[in-house]
């Protein structure tokens, strides 16, 4: 993976350049560019339907962009099947609806990636899996099935599943939007602890308070474009764009 690395300079963990994606006539991404440094946590805010999820899925090629570049650790993501499997395995993804494998116990959900993708022995994977479950305070639910857990527990298990792959980068797609209000806190706590351990993360969220306290930068997106990017203080207190202000007013009114 070292081939293209620039001499001396710090290569961003993730570099996105001029990303475009349309579904039929609808342009979902209209030229997205940004960087994510190693250990940096960025939140992506914006109204629904502005391409935030599509952006995340273009980064690990669950969706193929029409054009534009995605660079991970100085290496461009290209459309070769093998490379894409490898790249996906190095990017953790957490979904809005958890998407745990419903037929597998929590521990097996966490272990299946290391076992099947990384070819780790079952014994080693179980050890790793229990470690990850401990980090999300779920070791007592290791043998439960997803349907037996609360939403918050399911999302924590999903985070453990992604972390078990030892990813370079974590993508969160509205990780708390499907949760009951009283369960949001436990999930945000876990994400905050990841931020503290300097995990590189890109988080699509509507939790303004969380974006302020846990993220280094905030990106505001609308209609497939980044309208502005800056520190939480700047974006949340003194945004440049009228649209950002309008959006923030709307969601803080609630």
């Amino acid at each position: 993976m070292d081939g293209v690395r620039k001499k001396g300079g710090n290569v961003p963990a993730l570099k996105v350049r001029d990303l475009y994606k349309s579904y039929g006539d609808l342009e979902v991404l209209s030229g997205i560019s940004f960087d994510l440094e190693k250990g940096e946590v960025k939140a992506v805010l914006g109204p629904s339907g502005t391409g935030k999820s599509t952006l995340l899925q273009c980064i690990n090629r669950l969706t193929v962009p029409d054009r534009g570049e995605v660079w991970l650790d100085g290496v461009e993501v290209i459309d070769s099947k093998r490379e894409i499997y490898k790249i996906r395995s190095s990017i953790g993804m957490v979904f809005q609806h958890f998407n745990l494998f419903s037929h597998l116990r929590v521990l097996d959900n966490v272990c299946i990636g290391p076992i099947r993708v990384k070819k780790m022995s079952r014994k080693e994977a179980v050890k790793l899996g229990m470690e990850k479950l401990k980090q999300v305070n779920l070791e007592d639910k290791a043998n439960a099935y997803p349907a037996e857990l609360s939403g918050g527990q399911q999302q924590r298990a999903a985070i453990a599943r992604a972390m078990a792959m030892n990813p370079k980068l974590m993508l969160f797609d509205e990780p708390t939007s499907a949760l009951d209000p009283e369960l949001i806190g436990e999930v945000l706590e876990i994400i905050k602890s990841l931020a503290k351990s300097r995990m590189t993360m890109l988080i699509v969220t509507h939790e303004i308070g969380f974006a302020r306290s846990a993220c280094d930068k905030i990106i505001f997106m609308e209609h497939g474009k980044i309208l502005e990017e800056g520190s939480p203080d700047k974006i949340l207190n003194d945004p440049e764009c009228a649209r950002t202000k309008e959006f923030l007013n709307k969601i803080t009114e609630l």
Binding site: N60, Y85, K86, R88, S89, M93, F101, G113, R116, V117
Partner: peptide
């Protein structure tokens, strides 16, 4: 979404159908 999650882990289509979809 089950398939999406499997792909996100880096599973191939073959692994996804064998370990996630078929069961």
């Amino acid at each position: 979404t089950q398939v999406l999650a499997a792909h996100a882990l880096g599973m191939s289509s073959y692994q996804t159908s064998l370990y996630i979809v078929l069961p």
